[in-house]
Amino acid sequence: MDILVKAIDVSKNFGPFKALDQVSMEVARGEVACIIGPSGSGKSTFLRCINLLERMDGGAIWVNDALMGYRRDGNNLHELSDAEISRQRRRIGMVFQRFNLFPHKTALENIMEGPVQVLGEPADQAREHALSLLARVGLADKANHYPVELSGGQQQRVAIARAMGMRPDLILFDEPTSALDPELVSEVLDVMKDLAASGMTMIVVTHELGFARNVANTVTFMEAGKVVETGPASEVLSAPKSPRTAEFIRAVHS
C-alpha cells in the first residue's frame, strides 16, 4: 500500500491544555479518511498540523515522503524557511468550515489565484482549468460572481474547486458542512463524493456519519487529543470496539 500521509506521535499543547497527545495516523494514496469525535477532541488541530497551519510541539508528519516543516541533514533537523514551507503547502489543498473564499475576487479569480500567482501557470491555461473545475462542481454559470453573491453551499463548492485548482496530492476538509444550512449540505457532500470517486486522497473532519459510512475507507475516532479507535469505516461505525466510540455514534444518531 502506498502511504501518502504518515503522522507519528503528533503532540500539540495550547498552554497547559493538551490538544493533541501523541496522535499517529496513516492514510494511503487514493483513500478517504474520516476523523470523527466530539468537539474539542483535537481533530481540527491535527488536520491543521498536517499543512503546518499549526506548529507541532512533538512528533512528525510526512506527506508524500516529505517531512513537513523540516529538512533532515545527517543528524540535524533544520527548520524550513517561509518560502520552503509555502512550497510544501502547494501540494496540500484545504477546505475550511467557513469557506474563506477571497471576497474581493470572483469565483473564477479565487480558483485562478493559486495556479497563476504561486505555480506560475499562464493565465489562459489557468482560466480554462478553473472553468472546467467550476463546471465539475456545478457552478459554470457563477464564474463571475463574487462570493457574497453565492449561497453557503455554492461558496463551499467554489472553495473545493479552489483547492483542486492547485492539482494537490491531498485535500484536507475541516468540517466542510458544519456552517451550512441543512438543505445545502448534500450539494457539498455530492461534490466530495465525486472527488473521492475520482481517486483524490482526502482527510475529512466531519460530523456527517452517513458520508463517512458511504464514502470513507477508514474512520478514526478521536477524543481528548487521542486516537481512541481507527479502522475500516464499516467496522468502526457499525461494530465499534471501544465503548466511547459506540456512545459517540449513538449520541450523533439520536
Binding site: D82, G93, M166
Partner: peptide
C-alpha cells in the same frame, strides 16, 4: 481565515500581504 486560505494555496508571506 483569509491569511490561512492564502497560506494553504502556498503563498509566501509577502505574496499573501500583497495579493490577499
Amino acid at each position: 481565515g483569509q491569511y490561512e486560505a492564502a497560506r494553504t494555496i502556498g503563498m509566501t508571506q509577502r505574496k499573501m500581504l500583497r495579493r490577499i
